[in-house]
């Protein structure tokens, strides 16, 4: 058998660097709603980031910003936000953003 496949894992066992490989799928395309932040309400408590299942909240120093390439739109961040700073909005409102 002639292997044409380009090896994905550097190791014999399927280990990889999570920072590089974990988020390879563009799961953002699965989303029907996205969390939108009202920065005036956010107190930077970090609960949205702690609860986010795929860990796609990015720490911006005074607030958290969702990484839309990976956010599946589950809404847990908005549900857990004690300040109601996050609101889930339908993707249809953002179609012009491409």
């Amino acid at each position: 058998m002639v292997i044409k496949h380009q090896w994905i894992f550097k190791t014999e066992s399927p280990w990889s660097d999570a920072n590089q490989k974990m988020l390879v799928l563009d799961t953002g395309g699965w989303r029907t709603e996205r969390p939108v932040l009202d920065k005036s309400l956010c107190n930077y408590c970090g609960l949205c980031s702690l609860y986010c299942p795929p860990q796609c909240m990015r720490d911006k120093g005074d607030h958290y910003e969702v990484d839309l390439a990976f956010c599946k739109g589950c809404g847990i961040c908005a549900h857990e936000c004690p300040k109601k700073a996050l609101t889930m909005k339908p993707e249809g409102e953002f179609t012009n953003e491409g």
């Binding site: 894992f9 280990w15 990889s16 999570a18 974990m22």
Partner: peptide, 23 residues
């Protein structure tokens, strides 16, 4: 931040199974 067995989508799965089979 390393992971094992978590990236088995598509060719990742095939590669892991191929290596297992060969081992």
């Amino acid at each position: 931040a390393t992971g094992c067995g978590t990236h088995g989508m598509e060719m990742g799965y095939v590669e892991a199974r191929y290596k297992h089979w060969a081992a």
